[in-house]
Simulated scan of single mutants.
Amino acid sequence: MFDFKIHVNCPNTFARVGSFSTPHGIVRTPQFMPVGTMGTVKGITSNQLKETCAQMILANTYHLHINPGEKIVKDSGGLHKFMNWEHPILTDSGGFQVFSLGKLNEINDQGVSFRNHRDGKRIELTPEKAIAIQMNLGADVIMAFDQCPPYSASRDDVEIACRRTHNWLERAVQAHTRKDQALFGIVQGGCFHDLREQSLKTVSSFNLPGLAIGGVSVGEPTEEIHKIVRHLAPFLPERVPRYLMGIGSIREMSIAVANGIDLFDCVLPTRLGRHGAALVRDERWNLRNSCFRNDFDPLDKTCTCETCTNYTRAYLHHLIRSNELLGLTLLSLHNISHLIRFVRAIATAIEDGCFSEDFAPWQKDSIARHTW
């Protein structure tokens, strides 16, 4: 049911093109996954999302547990039917909220006790409960519950987080019983390369259908993320999809792909869209700026998304300056299409044998120069 095939390897890097079979379809890799935390990619309908060529999206266990609750989702027929998305879905375990809601939780070896960020009520999340929630949600890929330490954590604290993450993974494997879901383990270790290597070895020993590199985008400089991925690249298991959590800029994705990463997710495209910003080539444009007032060109002349096909920069500027919701939707649609188009271009370059020339991260201007 879950089969990962590698179709092409880059001879000069660790980059590869593959396909990951799931109950709701095949995911071509490398692939960017838009984030739909609450069962919705913010401001975008399922039909609009399909038009971006998104193949797999992400939802969040912690937030869906709080509202509407996994029972309602299960009673509706599962998350796919609940949100009208017929393609693959991945659910995060809530482990990132251990980091992002650090001021609202208490951690011990059993699990994490959260104070609900909405009403202050206590929520207990254990590896077993995170798995139970995700089995009720019914995503194709689910994540083991992990402890995600902040960048500022000491080595001792990161070692404790690794130990807990590995113990929690063992408990998650025992609790998971749905054969139509793929359970991924998560590699932790902070910026300590030896701890990362040990964690990868431990997580890989469970022979799961996929794994993720977590604990990045937690306050560290982006160069630290690159160092982590570069260090792990030679040790990553070959025959499973590899997922780098929380990454979504084209530079970071190109470097990660060069080091063997297959899957990415990030809130960046919709968050920028909601703030009136568009991704165009390797730049971020603020559509509030007056320079777009009389600019009747498409947002990106090379893009075929709904936004760029039908609307001008002047119209988008008008919508954003007028605080019209349509403007935020159109920019979000374009930004998602932009990143998905980018990873598709990377896949084509790998297949054509020119990835190391056209997208090599050590060529500082290569991404901006390449036509995609």
Rank of each mutant, 00 (worst) to 15 (best):
V343W: 12
I57Y: 05
K179N: 15
M1T: 14
G246L: 02
G190D: 03
N207I: 09
P241N: 06
I228W: 06
D156A: 11
M38N: 14
Q110V: 09
N167G: 11
L232N: 11
H24K: 10
S337F: 15
G95H: 00
Q181R: 12
N207D: 14
T177F: 09
M83Y: 01
L64R: 05
K5A: 15
V257L: 03
N294D: 09
D352N: 06
F114T: 01
T304L: 15
R16S: 10
Q134A: 01
H193M: 15
G120S: 11
T302E: 14
N207H: 13
R251V: 02
N84V: 03
H317S: 10
H176V: 02
I228S: 09
V280T: 06
L195C: 06
N9W: 13
A15D: 11
L263T: 13
E238H: 14
G185D: 08
Q97D: 04
V173N: 11
D358L: 02
I186D: 03
R321E: 08
D92V: 03
D297Q: 14
L244R: 06
Q134V: 00
P241M: 03
R281W: 04
R122E: 05
G246R: 00
N105F: 11
G39L: 07
L169K: 13
S46R: 03
A172P: 03
E220N: 05
T202G: 00
V229L: 03
L331V: 12
Q134C: 00
Y311D: 01
G246I: 10
C266S: 12
R28T: 04
R321A: 02
I131T: 12
M1N: 12
S204Y: 13
E159G: 02
H318D: 11
N286K: 07
P23M: 08
F342I: 10
Q174R: 06
D297G: 13
Y62D: 00
L101K: 02
I228V: 15
L58V: 14
C303V: 06
I57T: 13
E357W: 12
R284E: 13
Q48F: 00
L195Q: 06
H80C: 10
P209F: 08
S76N: 15
G353C: 01
I57F: 08
W285V: 03
V27T: 11
N105K: 13
L330W: 06
T348R: 05
S46H: 11
D365C: 00
R288T: 02
I247R: 01
F192N: 09
M1Y: 09
R344V: 13
E197R: 14
G189A: 00
R293N: 11
G276Y: 07
R164N: 04
N84Y: 06
L326C: 04
G190T: 09
Y315G: 06
V280E: 02
T37N: 07
L90H: 08
G353Q: 04
K71M: 12
F264E: 01
N136D: 10
S154E: 11
A153N: 05
C308P: 04
Q55W: 02
R155W: 05
